[in-house]
Simulated scan of single mutants.
Amino acid sequence: MAQSLSKLYVHIVFHTKHNQPLISPEIEKELYAFIGGIIKKNESIPIKIGGTEDHIHILAAMSKNIALAKLVEEIKRNSSRWIKTKDAKFQSFAWQGGYGGFSVSQSVLERVKNYIENQKEHHKKISTQDEYVKFLSEYMVDFDENYLWK
């Protein structure tokens, strides 16, 4: 086979450091667009980006040329630097140290897109922490809850 071909969808989730409610409505759309640009610069395709004041969900088609850890590092590093330039109130902005990355089947793309789009409504019923633990459990990811919220 002469070509390297892939179509890998990933649902990325990470939160602000200490779950601080720093992603205000006035900045979120611009932040999501900026993150979309970072994803594109890394040869990947942003499909849907959304979240709440303390966390973010990203659905993307991954490039075959970048590892998930590297993509998330680029997103977090560049978006954190960018948001600090927007206003003095964002000077302490930081993302958590880790992230969650979950594979997504082509057959459930629309469901995941809708889920991300409706985050604010969704979190009227379930906390960020409970949602994340639910994801980890559904994907059978071993974790130590002592380190999830750092």
Rank of each mutant, 00 (worst) to 15 (best):
M1L: 15
A2W: 07
Q3R: 14
Q3F: 14
Q3K: 14
Q3L: 14
S4G: 05
S6L: 00
L8P: 06
Y9S: 06
V13F: 08
F14D: 05
F14C: 12
H15I: 08
K17A: 03
K17M: 05
H18N: 12
H18W: 06
H18P: 01
N19L: 15
N19K: 12
N19D: 11
Q20P: 03
P21M: 07
I23Q: 09
S24D: 14
E28V: 11
L31G: 00
Y32G: 01
F34I: 04
I35L: 06
G36P: 03
K40Q: 13
N42K: 10
E43W: 06
E43S: 12
S44Q: 04
S44D: 01
I45K: 15
I45F: 10
K48V: 10
I49R: 02
G50V: 03
G51M: 01
T52P: 02
I56W: 04
I58G: 00
I58Q: 07
L59W: 01
A60V: 09
A61Q: 13
A61N: 10
K64P: 00
K64I: 00
K70T: 14
K70V: 14
L71M: 15
E73R: 15
E74T: 00
I75K: 02
I75H: 04
R77C: 11
N78L: 15
S80L: 07
S80Q: 13
W82V: 01
I83Y: 00
K84R: 12
K84G: 00
T85K: 07
T85Y: 07
T85I: 03
A88P: 06
F90N: 00
F90D: 03
F93D: 04
F93V: 10
F93W: 10
Q96L: 10
Q96D: 04
Q96Y: 05
G97D: 07
G97K: 12
Y99M: 07
G100K: 01
G100W: 02
G101Q: 05
S103K: 04
V104G: 03
S105F: 06
S105I: 05
V108W: 07
L109C: 05
V112C: 08
N114I: 01
Y115F: 15
I116D: 07
I116N: 08
I116P: 07
N118G: 09
Q119T: 02
K120G: 03
H122D: 07
H122S: 10
H123Q: 05
H123M: 00
K125Q: 05
K125H: 09
V133Y: 01
F135A: 10
L136V: 05
Y139E: 11
M140E: 14
D142K: 15
F143T: 06
Y147A: 08
L148Y: 02
K150C: 12
K150S: 14
K150H: 13
